[in-house]
Design a protein around this nucleic acid. Structure first.
Length: 539
RNA sequence: GCGCUUGUAGCUCAGCUGGAUAGAGCGUCACCCUCCUAAGGUGAAAGUCAGGCGUUCGAAUCGCCUCAAGCGCGCCA
């Protein structure tokens, strides 16, 4: 149990002695911003003043009289009725031992027995991943890591739209480049893919298959299949380099096979009606502001239809929650999909859609659009080659997904405290360096000699980690982790400046401070890994 | 027109389940290494929290209205 929880329990039992039953979740403990206000504070007395029918400060007095003071140095009632807690040093120091015991698992939440499917990227295998996918990959993967760490049972999933027209266009494009590579006349389809990658794939197919496809009647089908397969392999390689791995790849074609779509239409029948020869789904009965076509008058399904099948399919696999990380243009899509799921009896909040807003790149103060390869949009590969995986992931994780992001490329490659990634990694490397130099001094995991303000602040921040992980998981907000990382780095650097760690004259102080270095380093590493950023031991 | 999102320091953003003097980073200015990584630290300037009205002990936070910006409103995916 951490200090905050024990304070909550303490207040709860104090209230119980006063014949007031209050839920633990209704008691709020916050970190005091100002040291004069102690280590922690609660506004409980003000919140409950109505219940007591007394002035907040009087309620505070009653609570204070009934507190168990064993961890607490002193309490003060301040301002309108805040209760400020000044903790005993050893109760703050105890966090170091906990970090030492738990190591890489420090901050991990209890198993929740709650299955979550996080679907992200899901780009069509027709070309390189672009910037939007990159941000989606960074945020989706961070959400998955954070939720996993917080104790959820997480599956990372990629949905391949391999049944649509784009794949046909890809097939035609590859076929054209194949002809080109053989020195034969060719024409690229109008909506075709003109990138270098298609030429490379065509060349590879030529190497593998020779010219036999010239005479093959089913050549186009082969170009479609093999082309998208090779594109997907390339996407997987890029994602792997970016630190992102998926557990499941679902193919739209597979999802649609075995008459699954027809079965679903049958199931939805009570919610459908015909209009002008098309089949519409009455999503307005639920959350939508408009009914949606699911089968066009020409008999084709709209994109929405197999997607319903896919989401129902995911639910049938036993997930308690589906998280979709999508581009912001899918915004109108949320309520119709929720409506469809509700037709299956699911609650509207089993589906949680995280919309990713646009990214604008800024380089040397100017908007930057083109990649090095002329004419193309910026790709995921451009980003990690030019900026590096760590900085790219950190910058994407740093801001709430729902907001537009200005990505300062010049800052991201800068090696100074201005760059938040280097600032954090440098803090880690510094700690490693001190620990290395002090390796002959035994570590005091009780931290008995930690006294100064910068030491206490660091201890408190370390103790906060579990709560931050929990909150970030619940809010699906990786930026809460990067905010935590940044504060941790600040506190580490401040501690470093204020406190001399290795000091042969005062070995007892050194032992305690080295243990604090160790704990800070471990927490920094754990936090960085949640956003997929490495923790270098030297820089 | 309807719906959603956003509006906080010069710039990019936290804070929003109501709480003590509204916080970071960038940028600007002034300082700090005989000592564990100066890839660091300290300090200063900088805000009508878009505007108005309301709810209450208390509002950046909740409600209503106005203004401004973005997105969505296909038998597209």
């Amino acid at each position: 149990m951490n200090l905050i929880e024990s304070l909550k329990l303490n207040i709860q039992s104090a209230l119980a002695k006063l014949d007031k039953q209050v839920e633990l979740s209704d008691i709020i403990i916050e970190h005091s911003r100002d040291l004069a206000h102690g280590d922690y504070a609660t506004n409980a007395a003000m919140k409950l003043s109505r219940l007591f029918a007394k002035a907040p400060r009087d309620v505070a007095n009653l609570i204070v009289e009934n507190l168990d003071m064993s961890n607490i140095e002193k309490v003060e009632i301040a301002g309108p009725g805040f209760i400020n807690f000044f903790m005993k040093k050893d109760s703050l120091q105890s966090i170091i031992k906990k970090v030492h015991e738990q190591g890489d698992d420090f901050g991990r939440g209890e198993k929740k027995n709650y299955k979550v499917n996080v679907e992200f990227v899901s780009a069509n295998p027709t070309g390189d991943l672009h910037v939007g996918h990159a941000r989606g990959a960074a945020i989706g993967d961070s959400i998955a890591r954070i939720m996993e760490f917080a104790g959820y049972d997480v599956t990372r999933e990629y949905y391949i739209n391999d049944a649509g027209n784009q794949i046909r266009n890809l097939g035609l494009s590859v076929q054209a480049r194949y002809l080109e590579a053989l020195g034969l006349p060719f024409t690229l389809p109008e909506d075709g893919y003109h990138g270098e990658d298609v030429k490379i794939i065509a060349k590879q197919i030529l190497d593998e298959e020779g010219d036999r496809l010239l005479k093959d009647e089913n050549a186009l089908a082969f170009f479609m299949d093999r082309g998208s397969e090779l594109e997907l392999e390339k996407i997987k390689r890029d994602l792997a380099t970016f630190g992102v791995k998926f557990d499941v790849f679902s193919s739209e074609r597979k999802v649609r096979s075995n008459g699954a779509v027809e079965k679903e239409i049958e199931y939805l029948k009570p919610h459908t009606y015909m209009q002008d020869g098309a089949l519409l789904l009455r999503t307005t009965d639920y959350l939508d502001d408009k009914d949606r076509v699911i089968q066009k008058s020409n008999g084709d399904y709209t994109y929405f239809m197999p997607d319903i099948v896919y989401h129902v399919n995911k639910m049938s696999r036993g997930f308690d929650k589906l998280v979709d990380v999508l581009g912001a243009d899918h915004h109108g899509y949320i309520n119709r999909m929720k409506s469809a799921l509700m037709m299956h009896g699911y609650s509207s909040d089993v589906l949680d859609i995280e919309l990713i807003q646009m990214v604008r790149f800024i380089k040397d103060g100017q908007e930057y659009k083109a990649s090095k390869r002329a004419g193309d949009a910026i790709t995921l590969r451009d980003l990690y080659e030019e900026i590096g995986v760590d900085a790219t992931r950190y910058f994407f994780a740093m801001r709430a997904a729902s907001g537009h992001l200005d990505f300062d490329m010049s800052l991201a490659v800068e090696k100074s405290s201005s760059n938040p990634v280097y600032y954090a990694q440098y803090a880690h490397a510094r700690l490693c360096s001190i620990l290395e130099q002090g390796k002959d001094i035994p570590l005091d995991f009780d931290g008995k000699q930690l006294q100064t303000n910068s030491e206490s602040a660091l201890l408190k921040h370390i103790a906060l980690f579990v709560d931050v992980v929990e909150d970030a998981a619940k809010e699906r907000a990786p930026y809460k982790i990067t905010n935590y990382i940044h504060e941790l780095a600040e506190l580490v650097h401040a501690f470093y400046t204020e406190c001399r760690v290795i000091d042969k004259e005062h070995l007892d102080v050194s032992s305690s401070r080295l243990a604090l270095c160790y704990a800070s380093k471990q927490v920094m590493k754990n936090a960085l890994s949640l956003v997929g950023v490495s923790a270098p031991t030297h820089m």
